[in-house]
């Protein structure tokens, strides 16, 4: 048998190992945890953030970041809800939500590639703009009358909730995109060494705009799913989702320095965060403590990441 070294084992399966350990521990701590309904609930709860995290993975791997994803999700949700309650046309509502994501994503990308703004700053500016737009559009009120989209948020196929199915489809598509396509290899190359990508004949600016546009589309989709889950367009929900998504990405082993990371990692990272929240809920631990645990989790994930890299170097 091939002997595997501890840190290689971690590099390959570490995050899955942590998930398994957490899973077994949770099952032992609380008997309600293993009930199918509870497990499905966890997946349902992480679906929106995971879809956003798929976009953030592409961005962070290519050395960028989107801070506006949370507010973009809110904006898509509210406008999709508005269109739906006005026209009762579900495809049009979905189209509206995703289009808003596409447009805002492209604008972010344009600001970064054309005016050479830092992604951090460009998307921070976008966050503020969107905050204003959402308030103007909704007057701070929730938008109801969206019953026709119920299936997308509340329905299930073969017992699996529709949002979970959407999430899985998105993860699979982006995973294949990043692993098996030329575009995917460009994402890794841009994050690993932008200059090398340029010198290898890649139109880096166009690729960056494309990554942002695609990520925006996913965030728009996440907004539509969120609206269907809440059965309303809520201007107060969605802000902060960008950090939840980034947390999932980081816990899932994506390097903030760029060039390394996968969406399957982000999915697992997202499940880990959801699982911890769930078990703490079952144990009636208050949200304040949950936040503290989440913070420690992020720091822990990154420390492990650095440590395993150090081991690799010293050999």
């Amino acid at each position: 048998m091939k002997k595997l070294k501890a840190d290689e084992l971690y590099r390959k399966y570490g995050i899955v190992l942590i998930l398994i350990i957490l899973f077994i521990a949770s099952a032992m701590i609380n008997s309600n945890f293993l009930k199918p309904q509870n497990l499905i609930n966890i997946l349902k709860q992480i679906s929106v953030v995971t879809i956003i995290a798929c976009g953030e993975t592409m961005l962070i791997v290519s050395g960028m970041i989107d801070l506006s994803a949370g507010l973009l999700c809110t904006t898509s949700m509210c406008f999709a809800a508005g269109v739906l309650s006005a026209t009762n046309n579900v495809p049009l509502a979905i189209f509206t939500g995703i289009s808003i994501g596409v447009v805002c994503g492209w604008v972010n990308g344009f600001m970064i590639t054309h005016f050479k703004l830092q992604p951090f700053i460009a998307t921070l500016a976008m966050t503020n703009v969107l905050q204003g737009v959402v308030q103007l559009y909704t007057n701070g009120q929730s938008i109801g009358g969206v019953d026709k989209i119920r299936f997308l948020g509340q329905g299930a196929i073969l017992g699996i909730p529709v949002p979970v199915i959407i999430m899985i489809i998105v993860v699979v598509i982006i995973a294949v995109l990043m692993k098996n396509t030329k575009f995917g290899t460009c994402i890794y190359a841009i994050g690993g060494s932008e200059k090398t990508a340029i010198a290898s004949g890649i139109n880096v600016n166009r690729k960056k705009r494309l990554i942002f546009t695609l990520s925006g589309a996913l965030t728009g989709l996440a907004g539509v799913v969120l609206m269907a889950r809440l059965m309303a367009g809520m201007p107060s929900v969605g802000s902060g989702y960008e950090f939840d998504a980034i947390t999932a990405v980081i816990v899932g082993g994506t390097s903030f320095l760029g060039g390394i990371g996968t969406v399957t990692g982000a999915l697992i990272g997202s499940i880990i965060v959801g699982l911890i929240n769930n078990i703490l809920n079952l144990l009636h631990v208050s949200t304040q403590y949950q936040l503290i645990v989440k913070g420690l989790l992020i720091a822990g994930a990154v420390i492990i990441d650095i440590k395993t890299k150090e081991n690799k170097k010293s050999r």
């Binding site: 890794y188 190359a189 690993g192 060494s193 200059k195 090398t196 990508a197 340029i198 010198a199 390097s255 320095l257 760029g258 060039g259 390394i260």
Partner: peptide, 9 residues
């Protein structure tokens, strides 16, 4: 190191 290769890949 900056134009020739991507070290992390």
């Amino acid at each position: 190191a900056s134009y020739g290769f991507v070290g992390v890949r």
